[in-house]
Computed example of a mutant assay.
Amino acid sequence: MSPLPATVPAIVRTRVRAAVRRRASMSPRAAEERALLLRLLSLLTQYPDDELSEQRPRLASAVAALPRSPAARELGRFMDWFTAREPDALARHYVETFDLRRRSSLYLTYYLHGDTRRRGMALLTLARRYRAAGWETDGAELPDHLPVVLEFAALAGPGPGEAPLRLHRRGLELIHHALAEAGSPYRHVLSALLSLLPPATGADRAAVAKLAAEGPPVEEVGLDPYGAPTDHEPYGQGGFAPPGTFVPPPPAPPARVAPTAGGPREEGRR
């Protein structure tokens, strides 16, 4: 088995090799290549901060060294754009695309459950899946954030590791559709990811069309940062409440204790 190219960042090489040791269902070379691809997808769907922007030449070299495949071809197209833009322009495009538009949000459970109580349970189940596999996230993002889900897939393997991606395939299809409709180069990243999953069925395509037309289930439970529609930007036109817009209700006034002849009693409660 040939070693990973030296152009691949050290953190990618280390995590990919750790993932390969967990896989027995495919050849070591195929396992290493798939883990590398998933890890690159995880990095390229993250917010392009200064650190990620500085690594663009090395990431481009890693993508160029991938074996020929539909996923590698799509990532190559994305890297042509990603490496040619100024960091500030990349950051603006990312925020406008993923943080301010509901249909291309990267929080996968939203597409399956909407703002309902079931979404909270789905997030908890996903976090428990990570812990059961021996992986603890840093808590900076929700467990259903696509870069986090991709990182887990790279580390845990195509069976249990990629199960969350397969479960949320319809949401991924909708994200891809929204990105293509908006002309975002990130559509190539989603195309690369979808090429790794089982082909969409007729039922999948019908469900995606219905989801695009009607939106996910609605039941407000305090997850406002992830998508309460606004009057001027309804679902399907990019409406997505940006982080920080949720204002919690004021705390209830404390109970007052007033002395009485019969001893203290609590006021303000019934």
Rank of each mutant, 00 (worst) to 15 (best):
E32W: 09
A31I: 00
A133N: 01
E136T: 12
E74R: 15
T245R: 05
P158R: 01
P253H: 04
E233I: 00
T137P: 15
R102M: 12
G215H: 02
L108F: 01
P9W: 12
A19Q: 03
E219Y: 04
L196Q: 12
F240E: 14
T97L: 00
R17A: 14
L38W: 06
T14Q: 15
V8M: 12
A213C: 08
H188N: 06
L123Y: 10
P234R: 03
F82W: 14
A156W: 03
A241I: 12
A212S: 11
V63P: 02
R169L: 06
L194C: 07
D224G: 02
R101W: 03
E266A: 15
P251Y: 06
I11Q: 13
H113L: 12
G215F: 04
R73Y: 04
E86R: 15
S104Q: 05
R129A: 15
A192E: 05
P70F: 00
P251I: 04
E151Q: 09
Y111A: 02
E136A: 13
A206T: 04
L126N: 03
L100K: 02
F78C: 00
T137I: 10
S104G: 02
T230F: 07
K210E: 15
L146M: 04
D80T: 11
L4K: 13
E33C: 02
L38A: 11
A91W: 07
T245K: 01
A19N: 08
L66E: 00
V16C: 07
P199L: 00
G236N: 06
P185R: 02
H188V: 11
V16A: 04
R13I: 02
A84P: 01
R85T: 08
Q46H: 07
E51K: 11
S27L: 09
A212Q: 06
S195W: 11
A255S: 08
D138K: 01
A127V: 05
R128K: 15
A228L: 14
T14I: 14
R205C: 09
P3E: 15
R73S: 04
E33G: 00
A261V: 14
P28L: 02
G238K: 01
L43Y: 15
L108Y: 02
A200K: 05
T201D: 03
L190I: 07
S27F: 04
L223A: 06
T201R: 05
P216L: 08
A84K: 09
P250V: 13
S2N: 14
T109P: 05
L197A: 01
Y110T: 07
L59E: 10
G157E: 03
D99I: 11
A241W: 14
A212T: 03
F240Y: 13
V148L: 03
P229M: 03
V12M: 15
S195P: 10
P160W: 00
P242H: 11
R102V: 05
Y94A: 00
M121H: 14
A65F: 05
P199V: 04
R23H: 05
H176W: 13
P250L: 09
R265D: 01
L194K: 07
R21W: 08
F246R: 07
Y111I: 05
M79I: 10
I175C: 08
